[in-house]
Amino acid sequence: MADPGTLGLIFSITVIVGGLILAVFVAVTKKGVRETEPYLCGESETDFTDSVSPPATEVQWGLEKTLDSWVRFVRTKIHTGVLDDWWSLMIVWAALLLIMSLVRGWAWP
């Protein structure tokens, strides 16, 4: 086999089919299931899901906290939302491209 794509394909088929077989095996070999309230540290389930459940949007908190300064730089210094700020970056880049190509392509080929 010389192609990593084929290897990935074989592996992922193995993983999905094998995972399905394993899951069915584990699930089926049970004597039966019953419906119960889960043990949530002694509190009822509804209390948790209705009130204390953390907002789904805060999943990234740990990473955002670690990358705080970088994230803040990207959010407030680059993506300001002000057209003038964007223009300054875009025009500087256009000028740089022009200068680079002129210097490298024409003046100093």
Binding site: W93, A94, L97, L98, M100, S101, L102, G105, W106, P109
Partner: peptide
């Protein structure tokens, strides 16, 4: 025209 000059400017502008 000057091929390298014109093409350089045109390329830089159009890539942007």
């Amino acid at each position: 025209g000057l091929v390298s000059l014109g093409a350089s400017i045109a390329l830089a502008l159009s890539i942007w």
